[in-house]
Amino acid sequence: MLESIIFSILALFLVIGAISMISFKQSVYSAISFLLVMIAMAGMFALLHQSFLFLAQILVSVGAVVTLSLMIITSINIKRDNLPKHRVSPKSIFLSSILILPIILVIFKAISSLDIKFVEVDSSFGTIQSISTTLFSNWVLPFEIVSILLLSALIGSIIISKRRLNL
């Protein structure tokens, strides 16, 4: 029962945060809404007994990605004139919704046909220890590949921001 109430509140935060994120004209507000979404998402992970994921979400998404985004937004200091001029027209929202609706519906249909339930899990589920055990026993190669990916992303972002090209 308590879980249901927490889920409902978190879900409300998630949806409102997401909608406001795509609605705000100013990028800073969007980023702050996104911060809200990320924190609520971390809460969802906690609700699912994923304690390590909760931690990682807070550390990486909230602490790194969103902060970095905010920092970029403020540092490049986009002027109001440089923002897109046109308002989002209701027509385009409507058309996009019609386009997206079948995708959502087909996923809904797939979900509703699933026959799964939450089972009782032992207390070690989702902890750092158990995750790292699995990670370093069965998932070593993907882990290494991801580290290379992070390295190349690092190099790539440095090179892109350093380059001077006339667009």
């Binding site: 994921l53 990486v60 790194a64 990605v65 799964i116 690092l154 892109i160």
Partner: peptide
């Protein structure tokens, strides 16, 4: 969580790393 398997969690973890690198780029 539903399957009582750690593999999904690890995949999500790796996803977070991917999200981070995507963000930087």
């Amino acid at each position: 969580r539903a399957n009582n398997s750690q593999d999904g969690s690890i995949m999500a973890l790796l996803m977070i790393a991917v999200i981070a690198s995507e963000a930087s780029i």
